[in-house]
């Protein structure tokens, strides 16, 4: 009885002799070169796999992000284009709840007057404060009681700007438009006062903004 100890001491037994753990029978002694070669290749491949597994985390994995960048570039350009194309920026809030409409006409660029129950704004700049329920303060009324003096003063400036633009650029439409963005609870009285004031400031056309109902 002997054991293979890989050495050359007294207990060493050749692998090719009977009694050795590596001894695979008489046939292993007489293996051909091809068989030995393929066995050797198998062992090398196993060793390679072991080395790969061991050092797999050592090598960074290259991820190609070309496609991802292509998609992100297209999305970015599209969003920037659609954001810049919008001329009316409406920020609904508790104070500004816009009513609905079945109209399908798109908004155009013009001076935007926002009317809520508490404030009146021109192009997002507060111009007037209102009392409870959208009532106009006495000091804000002009001599002509339908007209709102602070709003009139601001709209006159806007009209002057618009006229200067029309002088320089003949392609700009001649009529001076106003876009009215109103809260759904605004009383009709306040609405007509705002429109009358704008009319006195030479605004000739009014566009009421509302949320488009789906299905028309």
């Amino acid at each position: 009885m002997s054991s293979f100890d890989g050495g050359t001491g007294p207990g060493f037994v050749s692998a090719m002799t009977e009694g050795s753990p590596l001894y695979a029978g008489e046939a292993s002694v007489h293996k051909s070169n091809d068989e030995l070669y393929s066995e050797m290749r198998r062992r090398e491949k196993k060793k390679e796999k072991r080395m790969k597994r061991k050092h797999a985390h050592d090598h960074p994995v290259d991820v190609s992000i070309n496609s991802l960048l292509d998609i992100l570039s297209v999305i970015l350009v599209f969003l920037m284009k659609s954001y810049s194309a919008s001329t009316i920026n409406i920020k609904p809030s508790k104070e500004l709840q816009i009513p609905f409409t079945k109209s399908i006409e798109a908004a155009t660029e013009s001076t935007a007057v926002t009317v809520t129950l508490k404030h009146i704004l021109v192009d997002d700049v507060p111009v007037m404060d209102l009392e409870e329920g959208g009532k106009v303060r006495e000091e804000d009324l002009a001599e002509e009681k339908m007209m709102l003096q602070p709003l009139y003063n601001k709209l006159l400036d806007e009209v002057e700007k618009r006229k200067k633009i029309m002088q320089k650029n003949s392609s700009v439409e001649n009529a001076i438009n106003m876009t009215l963005i109103g809260d759904r609870f605004v009383p009709f009285d306040l609405l007509t006062r705002v429109m009358y004031t704008a009319g006195q400031a030479e605004f000739s056309k009014f566009d009421f903004i509302a949320i488009k109902l789906e299905g028309g």
Binding site: A106, A107, D207
Partner: peptide, 16 residues
């Protein structure tokens, strides 16, 4: 970007 689509209704000023 706009989540809500808006539309307009054209109106003339009150005549006094």
């Amino acid at each position: 970007s706009a989540v809500v689509e808006v539309a307009i209704v054209k109106v003339s000023a009150p005549s006094i």
